[in-house]
Amino acid sequence: MKKTIIFLVILMTISCSDKKKGNREFLIVPNSETNKFSLTDSLFVGEPSAGDAIFIKNTVEILGNSYFEEFDSILNRHNGIFSHFKSDEIIKSINITPDLSFELKRKKYKREENLKDIQIILYTKFKRIVKDSILFYKYHIDGVGNYTLQRNETLSYIDEKLNLYSLNTYTGLSEDAVGVDSWKKYAIQKESGKIKFISDLNYRYLASNKEKEMDKPSEFSENPVSTTSNENYDLDYGFQNTTFLYNCNASDHVTFSLNYGDFSCPSTEIRFKALLIKKDENNFELKYSEIKGYNIETTLDSKNYSEEISVGSLKYSNNKIEFTWLGFYNTKTKKREFTQNPFTGKVEYSSIILQKCQ
C-alpha cells in the first residue's frame, strides 16, 4: 500500500510538471493489477478501421458503396490534422512509461506537394533515445500515365496492448478502387522501445471467419465480443513469416510465403495469392484468392476463377513442404487453367518438396 501511494504521488508530480512542456503529457497509465495499458490519445491510437478485417474487405471488394466514402472520409480527417505541419516538424510527443515515449513527426516533402504528400513517422524513444520508427500515416498522390492518378495510403492502429496494425493500400482515383499492398501486425515493446514485426495478416481469411461467427446464433453473454476485435488475427500455424523455395541455388527462384499463400517470381512478374486453410495438424488446402502482376493477369481469365475449389495442397513437416499444384478452376469453362506448377514451370502429376534456405 505504501509503495502504491508513493508511485501515485510521483506520477502526479511528473504529470503536473509535464503540463509546462507544451505537447508532452502522460496519457497511458499502468494498471497495477493487470499490468495493461490504456492508450487514450486518439492521435496515437490512430485509425481503428486499420485493425478491422471486415471493414478492409468491404472497402476493397464492394465497389460504389458507403465503405469507399467512409475510407475517403477517414483520410480527409487525418489530412485535416497532419497537413498543417511543416517538413520535419514534430507533431506531438507523449510518455508511455517513465522510460518509453512516442513521437509523431512529419516527413520532409516538397513545398508544392504539401497536400499531395503527407507522411507521418512514429518514433519510439527509450530513456530519451530513439530506438525505432515506422510509417504511421501516408497520403501520397502519384501521376500514372497521362489520364489517371494513383494514391498510396497507410493507416495505423495501436491497441491497448501496444500492438500496432499497419494497413498499406493503393487507390485508383479514376475508378475509386482500393487495393491492399500489405496488412501487418507489430508489437511495440515497452521494455526496450523496439517495434517487433509479428506477422502478415490476411484480411479475406480473417473477415470470413468473423462473418461466420456473426452468422452463428448468439448465446446470452454479459460481456459480448465486438465484431471488430483484433484478437486472434494471426495465422499462427507454427511457420508464419516463413518463405519456402524450390531451388536454394537458383538466382531467380519462385518463393512461397505461407502466411498469405503468396507466390512471386521477379523475372516473370508472376504473383498471385491463395488462402491457406488448415485441415489438420500437418495438412493444408490452398484456395484461389487474388492474382497480381500485369503480365500474368492479362493472359488469364482470373475473374471466373473459383474461390471455393482448391488450387493445390501442402503437407508441412520437419521444416519442409510437400507441395501439390492443381491449377485454377474456371467456373465458366469447367476446366483447370495454369496447371503448370508455379515452382517448376511444368505440369507435375505428383508433389514436389519445398524447403527453407539459408
Rank of each mutant, 00 (worst) to 15 (best):
S192C: 05
D142F: 02
I291G: 03
V144M: 05
E160K: 09
K125W: 07
T243A: 10
I62D: 03
N95D: 10
G22R: 02
F126W: 04
L63Q: 07
Y139N: 15
T324K: 08
T124D: 03
A274Q: 08
Q119G: 01
L75C: 11
S267F: 09
K86V: 08
A274W: 01
D132R: 02
P224G: 13
K196R: 02
I62S: 08
S32H: 13
E281P: 02
K194C: 09
Y246F: 14
L149G: 09
T154Q: 07
I5E: 09
E213T: 00
I121P: 04
L173Q: 14
F263A: 01
S49N: 12
S156L: 06
S302K: 14
G145N: 05
F343Y: 12
L63M: 07
F284C: 14
E112Y: 00
E69L: 13
K36S: 14
E25D: 12
Y137C: 05
D200N: 10
N23M: 15
A187W: 13
N146D: 03
E337Y: 06
G327K: 04
N230R: 13
V311W: 08
Q189D: 12
C16K: 14
N330I: 00
S93L: 07
D142E: 10
K216V: 08
Y237K: 01
K335I: 01
L201Y: 05
Y233K: 05
K21A: 11
F71K: 03
Y316N: 14
F338Q: 02
Q150K: 11
Y157G: 15
G143L: 01
N247P: 10
D262I: 05
L104I: 06
E113F: 05
K332Q: 10
R128K: 06
F343P: 11
C357Q: 10
L354G: 12
I10L: 05
S218Y: 04
N152S: 12
D262Y: 13
K107H: 06
G46V: 09
A207K: 02
Y67M: 03
Y316H: 13
N259Y: 04
N223Y: 08
N76A: 04
V45I: 13
T171P: 02
I296D: 01
F220R: 15
L39G: 09
L354S: 10
E307V: 14
N259E: 15
T227Y: 11
I74G: 04
G143E: 01
P98R: 06
